[in-house]
């Protein structure tokens, strides 16, 4: 029922699975039940016309890694925080730098950059010519702005 395409083994001898976005939660649940109890990392790849999201899963008991890939055209992917709690910060990081919106995430906001930062820096269409500055108020909260006079 879940449509999983298995690719040949990658360079690092890890099995790669391609999953449709709609099937992601069901596929991840079945992987979790197969013993992959540790979500190692989440990455995003900007392919210009689509965003690829890569999950590395690890089985602590068998010491085995697999890679699950999915892709999206409208920047949204279902959140896997209901399966692995540790996905919380990984998904926030991907939202912060790649602009991937994880639907169903309990607290989806920036984790590294200050609130108010414009754009997502690791995207191909990020505008580097607009320099942004970060300033800190008396209570230690960061805020970002484009005004160089607002700098340090």
């Amino acid at each position: 029922m879940v449509d999983i395409i298995e690719e040949p083994v990658g360079k690092d001898k890890r099995k790669i699975f391609r999953v449709k976005k709609e099937d992601l939660i069901a596929a991840m649940k079945s992987f979790f039940e197969q013993g992959f109890d540790h979500l190692s990392l989440i990455t995003g790849i900007d392919r210009r016309d689509k965003i690829e999201v890569v999950y590395h899963l690890h089985s602590v008991e068998r010491n085995e890694y697999i890679v699950v890939k999915t892709e999206t055209i409208n920047d949204t992917v279902p959140s896997v925080t209901s399966i692995w709690q540790s996905a919380d910060w990984d998904e926030r990081e991907q939202y912060d730098l790649m602009g991937i919106i994880f639907e169903g995430h309990p607290n989806l906001k920036r984790i590294l950059l200050p609130e108010g930062w414009s754009g997502f820096p690791l995207r191909k269409n990020y505008d580097l010519s607009k320099v942004q500055f970060v300033n800190m108020d008396e209570s230690g909260n960061d805020y970002a702005s484009f005004d160089p006079g607002d700098g340090w």
Partner: peptide
Amino acid sequence: TKKMAPRVRR
């Protein structure tokens, strides 16, 4: 980093 700069200044 830009985030560290206000701390360095302080």
